[in-house]
Simulated scan of single mutants.
Amino acid sequence: MNRVVVVGAGVLGLTVAHELAVAGHRVHVVADRAARDSVSAVAAAIWFPHAVALEPDVLESSRVTYDRLTKLADDPATGVVMRSGLVRVRRAETDLSWTSAVPWHEPVAEGVRCTVPVVETSRYLSWLGARVAALGVSTTWGTVSLPGRQGAEALPAAVAAIIGEQPDAVVVAAGLRSGALLGGDDEVYPIRGQVVRLANPGLTEWVTDEDNPGGLTYVVPRTDDVVCGGTGQIGDRDETIDPATEEAILRRVRELVPALADQPVLSRAVGLRPARTNRRLEMIGELVACYGHGGSGFTLSWGDAARVAELLG
């Protein structure tokens, strides 16, 4: 049984902490913000590999996560529901390898219809946090930083200074900050995502349209609202709401789903997806890198957490 510190408390950090605790490790989470304040809370959180390279191990983690979320959907307390919908396909060369992880999918004229898990983020993150705590995982709120030009080898000591104990291993799942904590990985970059949440007029089916001429467009109904997006602004770190962007999003989603035409705005948000040239999941000495998931944090979470647990034995 090892003392493992997980840096980050978004959906990846919490899921990794869960699987490590189940595996018998003593786990401590260190983070500068709670899941409800992270980009995970902004996500539409539909199972779909978005803004991540579809490599074989990514597809395998997607499949494992699909299966796990499907099981969790049996418990209403988790906030996971299975919903059918449409992936609009506008280009013949669109990569559809993700369908290998989806038990039911059907090609149609507009694209691909399929059934996937949809996560209601506030309920799910609350449930996951409670499960992690029940497993004995402790949490310390603080910012891990490496002063000056210190490399990743200084990370365990920086973590020990916060929790008062030297860890046997450190898992870096800190989103955009992960690259800096592992020696200045300059392949990490933000993808700005803006969403607007409308009242739900009774919709149950979702639709995504990545190649919409007006920009990335998706409509994901939840119990009490509909998450409408979006944007995919690479390199943009602006977390303020842009009214013009919201207006453009509303035009696109209401054209795609006319039933949304008269629905009032309930809330709005911006999040920075932590992307990388390729998602990074590997062990470096006593450190484990688990970041760069782009818009696929929920989609890869359980599969990647299982791989981290495997790397740490």
Rank of each mutant, 00 (worst) to 15 (best):
213 P>M: 06
23 A>Q: 10
86 L>Y: 09
110 E>Y: 00
288 V>N: 12
154 A>K: 00
136 G>D: 05
49 P>H: 01
233 Q>Y: 03
125 L>W: 07
271 G>Q: 09
141 W>C: 01
36 R>G: 10
225 D>P: 07
178 S>G: 13
37 D>T: 08
224 D>I: 01
31 A>S: 15
218 Y>G: 12
231 T>I: 07
79 G>M: 02
152 A>R: 15
137 V>F: 07
15 T>Q: 10
224 D>N: 13
52 V>W: 02
154 A>R: 06
172 V>N: 08
29 V>I: 15
26 R>H: 15
270 V>C: 09
248 A>H: 12
122 S>L: 12
129 G>W: 04
86 L>K: 14
191 I>G: 13
235 G>R: 03
16 V>A: 08
196 V>E: 05
44 A>Y: 08
300 L>K: 03
28 H>F: 00
104 W>Y: 08
58 V>G: 01
228 C>A: 14
105 H>S: 15
88 R>M: 11
291 Y>M: 04
88 R>G: 07
62 S>W: 00
65 T>M: 07
234 I>K: 13
271 G>D: 05
174 A>F: 00
120 E>P: 00
228 C>W: 04
296 S>P: 07
90 R>E: 10
131 R>K: 14
276 R>P: 11
107 P>H: 11
159 V>F: 08
248 A>P: 04
217 T>Q: 06
241 I>R: 06
26 R>G: 15
179 G>Q: 07
78 T>L: 04
250 L>Q: 10
119 V>G: 02
82 M>Q: 11
188 V>L: 04
